[in-house]
Design a protein around this nucleic acid. Structure first.
Lengths: 153, 153
DNA sequence: TATTGTTATACTCTATAACTATA
DNA sequence: TATAGTTATAGAGTATAACAATA
């Protein structure tokens, strides 16, 4: 196994670990990955139509309807009439929704802080620089592949 | 936004990009992430019972039944009688299954090779070292969180 | 009595198509 | 005619519980 393969394997394992940790954090909250993703975008964008949410989440309008139903039922968001377009809703975070997204943001930053604790600043700098290059390469490779390359999965 | 947060965000974005690329590679093959995961483990483990697969995949036995049904229907695997335990099957890769997993392995290594092309060896070394530390930290943090910490999601 | 895998049932995420209300 | 959202329908992944065959 090459060093390059080992790097890629570590990155994939990292993705799995982060996902598992997130799922575990959801237990008992009524939240899931998809619902939390919507909540998170709402936190970033402010009150939005379901159409806009479907756009940023890259899912169908129908799917957003279901996610908003669930989040509304659990008290995280509310559908409010859209001023100026009676077809649409403005999905807004409730107090509970604000609370949970604000807390998620804090925990995200705390995880990031802990992540680099113990890494010297020189090493952290190298990691940042390396990751930037990895991302750049990956975007290029994926673009090539989707343009009709041989695939890389 | 801190540098640490920026690192974590890049890692998360990386996970998304890799996942999207994988999904795109599946189009038209009858494969999905879950089915491919099973196929991949079968490639690594050799012929296995569904129970064993449920164990390594960390899913229910029922779920494995469904995945094997789909993969058998698409011609990637076969259920063979287990010699010595008439309750169980040995799930084995067909020729087509061997072909696709072998190809996946090659593409995985090719992606890894392309990934580090253009990164100097010093930089690659720093990246490897940094990632090893990140993984180490993350495993620790996740272990703490699941042992009753405040969560980090 | 315990284990392997299935059937039964249910929930979530996802999609497309048809439809209503509004623009 | 086009757009926002819902209802209808469907498929995939996931789970638990009850059950059959076998250990």
């Amino acid at each position: 196994m090459t060093n390059a393969t080992r790097i890629l394997d570590q990155l994939l394992e990292l993705a799995v670990v982060l996902q598992q940790d997130m799922s575990r954090a959801f237990e008992g909250t009524g939240l899931t990955t998809a619902r939390t993703h919507l909540l998170w975008e709402l936190h970033r964008m402010g009150p939005s139509t379901q159409r806009a949410l479907a756009g940023v989440l890259q899912v169908s309008a129908r799917n957003v309807s279901g996610l908003v139903d669930a989040l509304e039922g659990a008290g995280y968001v509310q559908r409010q009439p859209h001023p100026g377009d009676r077809r649409a809703f403005l999905v807004t975070l409730t107090g509970r929704g604000e609370q949970v997204t604000t807390r998620m943001e804090a925990e995200h930053q705390e995880l990031a802080r802990q992540l680099v604790t113990g890494l010297g600043s020189e090493r952290t700098g190298a990691l940042e620089e390396g990751l930037a290059h990895v991302l750049q390469r990956l975007h290029g490779l994926v673009a090539e592949a989707s343009a009709g390359g041989s695939g890389a999965g």
